[in-house]
Design a protein around this nucleic acid. Sequence first.
DNA 1: AATCGATTGTGAACAAGAGAACTAGCTTGT
DNA 2: ACAAGCTAGTTCTCTTGTTCACAATCGATT
Lengths: 224, 224
Amino acid sequence: MAPVSPRRRIPEATVARLPVYHRSLTELKESGVTTVSSEQLADLAGVNAAKVRKDLSYLGSYGTRGVGYEVEYLLFQIDRELGFANDLGVVIVGLGNLGQALANYDGFGDRGFPVTALVDADPAKVGSTLHGMQVQHIDDIESIFADGDLTIGIIATPAAAAQGVADRLVAAGVRSILNFAPTVVTVPDGVHLRKVDLALELQILGFYEQRDATEAVNAADSDS
Amino acid sequence: MAPVSPRRRIPEATVARLPVYHRSLTELKESGVTTVSSEQLADLAGVNAAKVRKDLSYLGSYGTRGVGYEVEYLLFQIDRELGFANDLGVVIVGLGNLGQALANYDGFGDRGFPVTALVDADPAKVGSTLHGMQVQHIDDIESIFADGDLTIGIIATPAAAAQGVADRLVAAGVRSILNFAPTVVTVPDGVHLRKVDLALELQILGFYEQRDATEAVNAADSDS
DNA sequence: AATCGATTGTGAACAAGAGAACTAGCTTGT
DNA sequence: ACAAGCTAGTTCTCTTGTTCACAATCGATT
C-alpha cells in the first residue's frame, strides 16, 4: 500500500529537457570532453544554468562542487533514467508522405527507437517494402504486438482515421502514442499520448509574426 | 512612449490553443452548425470548458450568455487574431527525407501556409523539381526574400548545418523559424523560433513507458 | 593546514497556467 | 412583465515551473 518509489518524482518539464541534455552530453563526450559545468551545459542546451542544476538534482547528486559534472557518468545516469537500457520499438501507422518520411528517417533508430513495423489500411500499400520492411495491414495489428514487447505507436494517418487507429493501438496493448494527425485524439487513462502538429506550429509562428508586424505599424503611427 | 497596444496580451498557452479551436470550429462550420457552447467546443478541442472561455475572452467578448458562440463569427475573429488575412509563405531548407515529405505535405498549404520556395545546399538537388517547384541553392537565399514578404523558414537539414542555415535565414530577413533539426539553434532577439524534435518526443514517451513498467514491477514486489 | 576561487545543490521568491466557483446577462416560456 | 434556466465572462485558489540567491563543498595553491 505504501508508495514504492516516492523518492523522487521528476517534473514533466524536466523530463522533456533530459533528452536535450543527453544530446549535448553525447556531443561533448565525442569531442573528448570529460567534465562540464552547469553553465556550459546550459549554453549547449539553450537553457538557464540554474534550471540545469535543478533538473539534474532530481536524478541525484551526480556533480562535484567546485568542478562540475563528469560527462560520461552523467550520460550514464540520464540513459538509465530515460530507459535507454530497454529497447523500445516503434510502429508507424499510415504511410502517406509523412509516414514514409518517418519510416525512412534514421533519426529514430539512431536514438534507440528502431522502427519495428509499418502498418497501413490501403491494400495497395500492404505487402510493399519500405526501408527494408514489409508493410502490414492494420487488421493484423494485434499479431504485431503479440510478443508483449513495449512499443510506441506513431499515428501518421489522415485526421479522419486517427481516432480509430488510436483505439486499435490501445486495444492491442500499446501504452504510448505519438500522434501526427492534425486532430484531437483521446485515449484512456494510463496511456500516454503526445502530439506533433506541424501546421499548428506554423500557425503559432504566424500569430507572432503578424502581431509584430502590426505593432511596428502602430509604433510608426504614434511617432507621426 | 506609452505602450501602444496594451489592451490585451494573449498568454502563450492560449496562442497555442487558438489554432486547435480554429480547427474544431472549421469542422463545425462544415457540418452546418451555427452556434457552439464552450462545453461543446472544449470537448472537440480536448480541453476544459473554463479554459475555452478564458482563452476566448482574451480575444474579446464574442459570445452570448445563455446561448454560446456563433461559429462563423468566432472563426472570423480567430482568423483575424492568428493573422490568416495575411498570406504567409514558407521556405523549406534542406530536402532530405523529412524536407521532401514536408514539401509534399498538403497540410501546410491547406491551412494557409503555401510553400513558396525549396532550398538546399546540395548542387545535385538544386534545379530538380519537387511538388511542382524548383529547388534553389541556399546561396541565392537573399534573392528569395527580396520582395519583403513575410515568410517562415523551415529548417529540415542535418543537425550540423542547422545553425548556419538559421543565421542565413535571419540575415535574409526571416523573423520566424521552425526547426526540425535535432539540435539547439539560437537566434537574435525579435526572431521567433520553435522546434519540432521527433526523436525527443519518442524519448519522452519512452521515459514514461519505462517508468510505468518499473512501477508495475515494484508494485508486484510489494504484493509478494 | 589553511585559505581561496569555483561550482553544485537547494530553499525561497516569483511567474504562469489550470481549474473551480461565482457573477452577470441573455433567451425562452408563461 | 417576470421567472427560470443556460451559458459567457471573471475572480480566486492551487499547482507547476522558473529564477534568484546563498550556503555547502570541493580542488588547488600557498
